[in-house]
Design a protein around this nucleic acid. Structure first.
Lengths: 329, 329
DNA sequence: GACGACTATCTAAACGGTTAGGAAGGACGC
DNA sequence: GCGTCCTTCCTAACCGTTTAGATAGTCGTC
């Protein structure tokens, strides 16, 4: 692998000039010399070593991403959007899949710190995210999920509470007498906000029966729980799910049990990835503006003001499709 | 951010000793000195700079991954498995989403070369992958898709031709008189192999009507094409899809058109991600052994023999579920 | 023709680690 | 008492860049 020194020797100059050419500065290089350098570099197949560069001027142009499950469509769309926004600014994305495991999350945090990522985007399930380690290292972090305490950590996310409220109200307005909630594991601030929105929507609706079920954020586990819950005689007439994945699991259970959706059971999801339009039946859901959030996060982190904490609320949409009992043409 | 020098000063030693302590070698350190170093490091919150380390001994402990679409469940599961295998060996994964765009793919290749990733795992749609650039840079690559010409590039994948054959034969054995193929874009070696397997399975079956439809690997586009194809009076009785995503698009179209699956139209998918068990109806598909492939790739790339090209064929399963017309209990 | 202003380039010191070479000191054998 | 061997540690070169400081050459000016 050719180095700047090799190029310099072949072009009959110094490494400084090679650097000036490849960075367009900070000093001028005469057109002839530039030409010689570029030719030599091409002949040697020279690619500047980004590590050395980073070591020298302190920016790695890399951004860490920590998500609970990269195979989950929501995080997949998020990663895709983040990657694109990062690449557009010459940055690459390092991924860390925590698998909902706090230990793995921590080890990714350590790996990112050692690799000196310029900043980190993180979606943690834990309420106490390992964010402190980044703060100690002076690495800016933006969390895309609600945090229990802000603690100076930047946050960009939709208002989960308001969104849960909107979806639940929508079900209530259909007149369903019994509504179940399939919430996440429940220890996180996110689950808490889902719960708050759900409860708030039901407050004062004394004739609506509510039940809460905590499941993992996976199709498989939600399906398993739903197969139980929906087989009971007292089964709910509608189900609010805190993620689309759980909703798909509930849909699966309905089909398996011979229950029609929405005629026997209405279902709403949450996240609104592209796939929610293609389920059977198409899913009513809360759509998060993933591309906009991703763009905003990366702009923030690669911009100047990456230091100061920011708390932003992104807008959401209630996307009404057939799974909730609405007629769509 | 503390450096080894800071730690050395505080511990009253030299940077060499700090290095010996953190690497357990290559020289001995007395227990007392080691203790002093560790204490000083803890007090200063020292994290060795992986860039400097990499620069010094030439290994970045990072692996690049290039996929067409990280939000696609198949690539998501793949990335997850690769990330886990890589992390288990102290490596991190850099992701590059090419979005089926050759230009973006090339720019990721360049970024990976400059960052001196130790190796690359790549799934390209292009037949001429930008693999040559890695070869020039002396970076080992493993392609997880079929290549037109091997050209010394390592490959690990299932036998697409054989798998396509198996799935198609399965449909034929149901006695369906008209079978459609939803293949990928068609320029790639992968699509070609799907096609070959499909054709081979049908050769000699003169009373079966076959038709070929090329779509993008997306639910949306496959659905759009299927809405057209399945609305025709001469609609196929069964559909072989070259990816699960396309199969989901076909299922969507069936539901939209009021066609029952499998009674009116049978459908098979390809890839066999976990979600294929949860569609309506559950999808008959070819399951690729993603975890095993990922483990094997990473073992290969982080092992010693990362140099020599390897051509491995992984086993696949035909997973029979309801979408193809089989009765499952 | 000496002087300042400017340009193009080179030299060398960082950046933060790793590691070979050598020095200092103690244990041991003779 | 001296050479030998070991252990422990330090010094300094190196990895491949960036960039400030120094230098040399050109030009215009008075």
């Amino acid at each position: 692998m050719a180095t700047a020194r090799d190029v310099a020797v072949r072009a009959g100059t110094s490494t400084a000039v090679v650097s000036y050419v490849f960075n367009n500065g900070p000093r001028n290089v005469s057109p002839e010399t530039r030409e010689k350098v570029l030719r030599a570099a091409a002949e040697l197949n020279y690619h500047p070593n980004a590590l050395a560069r980073a070591l020298s001027h302190g920016k790695t142009r890399s951004i860490g991403l920590i998500v609970p499950d990269i195979a989950n469509r929501f995080f997949g769309e998020l990663a895709r959007a983040l990657e694109e926004a990062a690449a557009a600014r010459g940055n690459i994305l390092l991924i860390g899949d925590s698998g909902l495991n706090l230990q793995r999350e921590r080890s990714h945090v350590a790996a990112f710190v050692e690799r000196r990522v310029d900043s980190v985007v993180m979606v943690s399930i834990a309420d106490d995210p390992s964010v402190a380690a980044f703060a100690d290292a002076g690495i800016p972090v933006v969390a895309l999920h609600p945090l229990a305490a802000r603690d100076g950590v930047s946050t960009i996310s939709i208002d989960y509470r308001a969104a849960a409220f909107a979806a639940t109200r929508h079900l209530i307005e259909h007149g369903y007498p019994a509504i179940a909630m399939f919430n996440g594991p429940g220890e996180s601030a996110g689950s808490r906000q889902h719960r708050e929105g759900f409860d708030l929507a039901l407050s004062g609706e004394s004739d609506v029966v509510a039940s809460i079920h905590n499941t993992e954020i996976s199709r498989a586990h939600a399906a398993q729980v739903a197969l139980d819950v929906l087989a009971r005689p007292s089964r709910p007439r509608a189900v609010y799910c805190s993620t689309d994945e759980q909703a798909y699991g509930v849909l699966f259970a309905c089909h398996r049990l011979g229950l029609r959706v929405p005629d026997d059971v209405a279902v709403t999801g949450f996240d609104g990835t592209e796939h929610s339009a293609y389920s059977y039946p198409p899913l009513t859901t809360i759509r998060q503006p993933i591309p906009e959030i991703a763009e905003r996060v990366i702009a923030l982190l690669t911009g100047d003001g990456a230091g100061l904490p920011v708390y932003e609320i992104a807008p959401f949409d209630l996307v009404v499709r057939e799974s909730c009992g609405h007629h769509t043409n």
